[in-house]
Design a protein around this nucleic acid. Structure first.
Length: 593
RNA sequence: GGCCUCGUGGCGCAACUGAAUAGCGCACUGGAUUUCGGCUCCAGCGGUUGCAGGUUUGAAUCCUGCCGGGGUCACCA
């Protein structure tokens, strides 16, 4: 049971005894006492005044007095305005800590909740390599999935691969025109980078054609529609839809190059998926759904044959679901995909879409249409909407070549980690392979932490220089603390697995115990809010407490055996919590660095 | 233009979803090691939470208006 619950129960007893009122413990507002005041837990008494019919101060005094003299766990209290600050006995904290130590999983829920969640993330287009924005997306989706698992839920990690459409036709066409049969092997380029190269080549040619047409007196709008290479790409898309054998096998070949490239990047990022969906499969399912919806009168058809959903009740604009020529749009396949997933995993408790906030409107419409179609589980669908990653010079723009490539970025943070760690690290006697592994752990840990420590909902600034920083609120700072603890434990293991409740502890030791005890509720909070940043900030605070403790109190040279054992045990416990929470963020921690 | 969203020390971020004197990191200044890993710790500097009203015992947080940034309003994904 967490501390504030224990306190609420005690307060309920007090109120019942003093004011003769039975109040549910949930009603009481219990908070951690602010650092500037004496106490551990604070009862905010304002909401109680209608029961006590006394001034805030008087009410707080009465309750505080009762708790200290009648309760078992309080050592003292003080009242400031409407706040009752309560101090808990050291023995209480030690008992709580002992029961925490007995839990094998440190508060990570081991019992199945019976709920299944689908978490979608990544979902790239297949015409260009992954970039910085995808990194935030992938790290977030992966971490949220792990956090949900830690709360006892079953989780299916998935993505929809946008493998079809005009964008891939553009790359294909450019490759046919300018590629001379180039392959990843012949060019020594990763498959996704090779395809990206031809997507850029298409764009270049397209622009020059448009400029040409404008020069010949054609309006800009007209030129953008009539550029020959665009018309050719559209022809290619039609051929693809007809499954023209030549085009289809080219499409399969080029996509396979991209997948090889993506898989390498996913390995590098340390993310994985349980089930993949391909748009080239699901867009057909979506079409069926739309036709059925039309029959049932949920959708309507315009004169030109296009099919729409009326959303005026919801005060949204009508949404196109199928074009007049019968081809599908993004929404079509998303409907198909959602329904398919729900079937595949049978009554899922929630579907979470990790997609940038530029698509807020899209998901609002998607969930609304699903609901209109009679799928009540649409209420359980959730758009995990995250903010854009911006660079110091502004938003990334592919046109201006400011896109930060995912592979390049990871490589560069690993290189930076190598440089810094070679200078300052403790690597003597380590094999070259182990060193390389360590650089990857530090570099990627820094990058992941940097992208995850910010509230997902908010847009964030990516400053390349800061991302590999080692000081302050960073991944390597936390990793360093872990490594230090491990080096301590190598020198001496703890022989005890519990703490005697009559020890006298320093404040920095009590701070640590109190904070460790908040770990289970932090995991729950992170899941509730789908926010890894809550865990990141928790861990950072834990490390600060530990460093502060480590700085001022000696451990191995402590003469008192009991105290020494306690401090080793406490250090080991901090290490375990760091490792556990970092794992939920997808970050590894090294024994040495 | 309509709708959505965000504005917190020079910069980057917190604030347990309405509570006490708004925290932290970077940067800057000054300190700490006969000690277990100094990639450490302690202290200082720096704020009228964009502006103006309102609700409340209490507002960075809720409401209204204005100013500024971003997003979206596609038969693109």
């Amino acid at each position: 049971m967490n501390v504030s619950k224990v306190v609420s129960n005690e307060v309920a007893k007090a109120v019942s005894a003093i004011f003769n009122e039975e109040i549910s413990p949930d009603f009481f507002q219990i908070e951690n006492t602010k650092a500037d005041f004496v106490g551990d837990q604070t009862l905010v008494v304002f909401p109680l005044l209608r029961i006590t019919k006394k001034s805030p101060e008087q009410s707080a005094e009465l309750i505080g007095e009762w708790l200290v003299s009648n309760g078992e766990i309080f050592s003292q209290y003080n009242v400031v305005k409407g706040f009752l600050n309560l101090s808990l006995k050291t023995s209480f904290w030690i008992n709580q800590f002992n029961s925490f130590l007995r839990e094998e999983n440190l508060g990570v829920v081991a019992k199945p909740s019976g709920k299944t969640f689908i978490v979608e993330y990544s979902s790239p287009n297949t015409n260009k390599p992954l970039h910085l924005g995808h990194l935030r997306n992938n790290f977030l989706g992966f971490s949220v999935a792990e956090i949900l698992k830690a709360n006892g839920h079953k989780v299916i990690k998935t993505q929809i691969i946008n493998d079809r459409g005009i964008h891939i036709c553009k790359s294909m066409l450019a490759w046919l025109k300018f590629g001379n049969g180039e392959t990843p092997e012949s060019s020594n380029l990763k498959g996704d980078h090779l395809i990206g190269k031809y997507y850029v080549a298409f764009d270049k040619e397209y622009k020059s054609q448009v400029a040409d047409l404008i020069k010949r007196g054609i309006s800009k709008q007209e030129a953008e529609k009539k550029a020959p290479i665009l018309l050719e790409a559209q022809q290619l898309l039609l051929k693809w839809e007809e499954k023209d054998p030549e085009i289809y096998s080219l499409w399969e070949k080029m996509n396979s190059w991209v997948y090889d490239g993506f898989n390498q990047t996913y390995d590098l990022m340390g993310v994985d998926f349980d089930k993949l969906y391909y748009e080239s499969d699901t867009f057909l399912l979506g079409k069926d759904v739309v036709y059925k919806g039309l029959e049932k009168g949920i959708f309507y058809e315009k004169e030109d044959g296009s099919i729409w959903c009326n959303l005026s009740e919801e005060k949204l604009d009508d949404k196109l679901l199928l074009r007049a020529d019968g081809t599908s749009v993004y929404m079509t396949q998303d409907l198909g995909t959602a329904i398919e997933r729900h079937k595949d995993f049978n009554a899922v408790s929630g579907m979470i879409y990790t997609v940038g906030n530029e698509q807020n409107h899209h998901f609002k419409v998607l969930f609304t249409i699903l609901k209109k179609l009679g799928f009540d589980w649409a209420d359980e669908c959730h758009h995990l909407s995250y903010g854009m990653v911006e660079l110091p010079e502004g938003r990334m723009k592919s046109r201006e070549g400011t896109v930060v490539d995912a592979d390049d970025l990871i490589q560069s943070v690993v290189n930076d980690a190598k440089q810094m760690t070679s200078e300052r690290g403790h690597l003597e006697g380590m094999s070259i392979d182990d060193k390389e592994k360590l650089y990857r752990i530090i570099g990627k840990g820094g990058l992941k932490y940097y992208l995850l420590k910010v509230d997902p909902k908010k847009k964030m600034m990516f400053n390349p220089a800061e991302s590999i920083d080692l000081n302050g609120n960073t991944g390597p700072f936390i990793q360093y603390c872990y490594a230090r603890i491990q080096s301590l434990l190598i020198k001496q293991q703890s022989t005890e697995n519990k703490v005697s409740s009559n020890l006298t502890l320093f404040n920095s030791e009590l701070d640590l115990i109190k904070w460790i005890l908040a770990y289970p509720s932090t995991i729950q909070e992170a899941a509730k809010q789908l926010s890894p940043s809550i865990l990141a900030n928790y861990t950072y605070q834990l490390v600060k407490y530990y460093n502060s403790f480590y700085q001022s109190i000696s451990i191995l040279s402590e003469q008192d055996k009991e105290l020494k054992q306690f401090r080793i045990l406490l250090s080991g416990c901090v290490g375990k919590v760091i490792k556990s929470s970092m794992r939920l963020l997808g970050i590894e921690v090294p024994k040495v660095m």
